[in-house]
Design a protein around this nucleic acid. Sequence first.
DNA 1: CTAATTAAATACCAGCCGGTACAATAAACC
DNA 2: GGTTTATTGTACCGGCTGGTATTTAATTAG
Lengths: 202, 202
Amino acid sequence: MNSNTVKPVRGRPKTLDRDHVLDVAMDSYWKDNIGNLSLNEICRRSGVSKPGLYREFSNEDGLMKAVLIRYQEQVLEPVQQMLNSDVPFREALDNLISFATSVNCHDESPNGCLFIKMRESRVHLGKETQAQIDFLEKQGLVFFKKWVERSKTKGEFSVDMSSEFVATYIDAQLSNASTQLARGVAPETVKKILLVAFSVLE
Amino acid sequence: MNSNTVKPVRGRPKTLDRDHVLDVAMDSYWKDNIGNLSLNEICRRSGVSKPGLYREFSNEDGLMKAVLIRYQEQVLEPVQQMLNSDVPFREALDNLISFATSVNCHDESPNGCLFIKMRESRVHLGKETQAQIDFLEKQGLVFFKKWVERSKTKGEFSVDMSSEFVATYIDAQLSNASTQLARGVAPETVKKILLVAFSVLE
DNA sequence: CTAATTAAATACCAGCCGGTACAATAAACC
DNA sequence: GGTTTATTGTACCGGCTGGTATTTAATTAG
């Protein structure tokens, strides 16, 4: 939780609030066009000077990677824990749908999943950020796969598809939902599409 | 076909090749990050001076709208004609899948549908471009809907879903395919996902 | 020929961008 | 007290952006 790693040291005491900057940056990347969102703007919004931000995160790439890690901890991890629990397959699937169609930052504006949003613009981001995206993607697919395999052994999943492919399919449909929400499609519509798309899994 | 609208006039003869500029711009928007692609770069690539480009297209918004119109004529229209023909539903669906998973500009690089790509970044584009996107989206949904209704009367489509929703569902899945291709997902994987997603329609 | 008309490109504008030198400040050590 | 260490923010850098004022070139009309 404490991200300002304790440093009882010598020099001038640090006033920069790392968590606050990350919160502002996460919100900003979530709501705005990532490509058009400048570091200057993030500095303005978080009330931090530009050199201060560079000292903390090295560069834009470092900031984005840090944001992704924070997003994983705050948003993605609870979902993965839900999948790891012993909730029945169909119920877990419904939870997934609810999660995917209700992700709104904190207020209004475009919704969707920040990770998926960043994954879509992966090629235009920095190397560190790309690596983090790849890690999260791989990790997510593994979670899905294990979940499906567990459901198979529990006899809750009888469709004849490889767990690998089902994981890919679920990932694809959730991505689709996120993209649609970000585009402004009504959440009820997105939900109906997900329900139909997932109806092949039973 | 003649986009340089004939103008047997007075002044200095026009040397700007409108079609060439549009080809270059379409390719560029298709392959590159739309948000990061500058008019300067398009001028460079097409060998046209900046004021020349502004005289022809007014501004960036005008150019994008023109590109979208060209894309509709060159890429989308053939598909819509296919849907309008009397091809059996399942065959038309397969054609759609083939189309969606084979759209590569002319060479390598990211694939996907330019219209869908632009629709995803709709909010960040100009007003004219947004209007054109909305028009194409509406038109596309109408085509899908009519196609489904025709298939229903022909008895080729028996699933109990409103034609409206099926149109939305197909649009969503094709969008998903395009996004995945643009992200670099293997076309065979995208195809398999589409096949499964569309399997609910029979 | 000159005048009018149209398109051409150079060279510029203010405003951003990511990133950084640098001097001021605030603490701990001695 | 002075020195050292670390963080601060101002003010700047070159480079790029969308967009344009302006001059020059090429054609037709009279």
